[in-house]
Design a protein around this nucleic acid. Sequence first.
DNA 1: AATTGACTTTGACCCAGATCAAGCGCGGCA
DNA 2: TGCCGCGCTTGATCTGGGTCAAAGTCAATT
Lengths: 247, 247
Amino acid sequence: MKDPKATGPQSCEDCPIRHRAVCARCETDELEKLEDIKYYRTFEAGQTVIWAGDPMDFVGSVVSGIATLTQTMEDGRRQMVGLLLPSDFVGRPGRDGAAYDVVATTDLVMCCFRKKPFEKMMMETPHIAQRLLEMTLDELDAAREWMLILGRKTAREKIASLLSIIARRDATLQLAGMRGPLVFDLPLTREAMSDYLGLTLETVSRQMSALKRDGVIELEGKRHVTIPDLPRLLEEAGDDADGGMMA
Amino acid sequence: MKDPKATGPQSCEDCPIRHRAVCARCETDELEKLEDIKYYRTFEAGQTVIWAGDPMDFVGSVVSGIATLTQTMEDGRRQMVGLLLPSDFVGRPGRDGAAYDVVATTDLVMCCFRKKPFEKMMMETPHIAQRLLEMTLDELDAAREWMLILGRKTAREKIASLLSIIARRDATLQLAGMRGPLVFDLPLTREAMSDYLGLTLETVSRQMSALKRDGVIELEGKRHVTIPDLPRLLEEAGDDADGGMMA
DNA sequence: AATTGACTTTGACCCAGATCAAGCGCGGCA
DNA sequence: TGCCGCGCTTGATCTGGGTCAAAGTCAATT
């Protein structure tokens, strides 16, 4: 993985509540009263942060690394319903149990707040709710984009859409409007990709091979991807205008 | 359609901002200053409220009737990404264009607020953002439930899930925990159902027939549905625990 | 009562993607 | 050095749902 700090907040240490994930505007003098309700947790790649249904007495945000939200049916069918990147928020004020499985797909650092005091603070500090509203609306847009992908796109378009989403996000690391090829490491296994896209892992593999064969992407090893021609990829994704949106 | 007031707010006239869609807690003395920024719009079944991309200078909430949010690809493939019921909120503070097509599927009354003043009021009245946050989180949950349906369920399960969602919502009209059969009218055409579920209209029709043949549902005409055994329907939907969630 | 047109159902056939089943590549480890 | 084991690829075959086509229902209109 790339250094996640590059896209995430510069540091969660500087100011916990100023942390972009929670609020971009609050004042530093709120720092002290937070010290006792905030803590950090780290996870290794593959570890589960919390299982759906388990009691969850905290909310938090991703400092570095990547986590996934997935839903599972009784018979084992799984659907990923969210991808958490640095600065993304986890947990719902006012809800006691986790709604989804949260799994670290890379090494992960989270900045957590005990839920009750956080809720109290949210009541007293208006812009926290305003900031959370903005973030939640972004996630909702991402979820809806995803619904179009799941409901109406072909396997090839789905793969291209996923790569666009990741490329787009990583592109912020590079010069905006740059011309050259885009290069990144896939943060997901083929299986995680299939859970994301509502496909089987075999279909994901086949379509990756097909996109490679057709020159839309280049692969070095299994994870390292080069996009020589982003507009071409976006066209393959089925939405020429842009590459989908991300939470 | 049923009288939508039964599930929606009792009246939008009583107090525009106390309107459940916006805020359940504000004080009546905010009424006056709202009179000049709020207005009503009515639409007939089938009318388009706004097209994706069009400038949108208002936000609002559904007073009565049902509307859909849909996304369309250049080649005409469509995916419904939201179902708006009475008290649901439309529009995003801080965004200028509509992100989705909004279409009235029944006769529709909306309570609208000019966007700029609404945003200003939201900044000044903390619980409005808090209320909108709650609602948006509910919508996000619904969208994620929907993603599981789109990505992993079979056609039969999709239909059963949709019927469960509608039945569940309409069930609030009836005594909670009631035993008897559930009866309601589908607010959607077969085509709208297919747009919702990522299927073709033919498949929707076939699966409706199959569920009828198997005694899971009873049909009188094309729209009037009876659910003789709700647990059976939920089982067919693939999630025994409950019938999915709704925005 | 017949016509029209929107919506729905049903049938026949086909294909994208699932399923089942080998193998491959490569890092970790004895 | 070789042998796991895990993630990935590739092949062969099957099938759920799509596609194309026709006919049925029903309310509104003439």
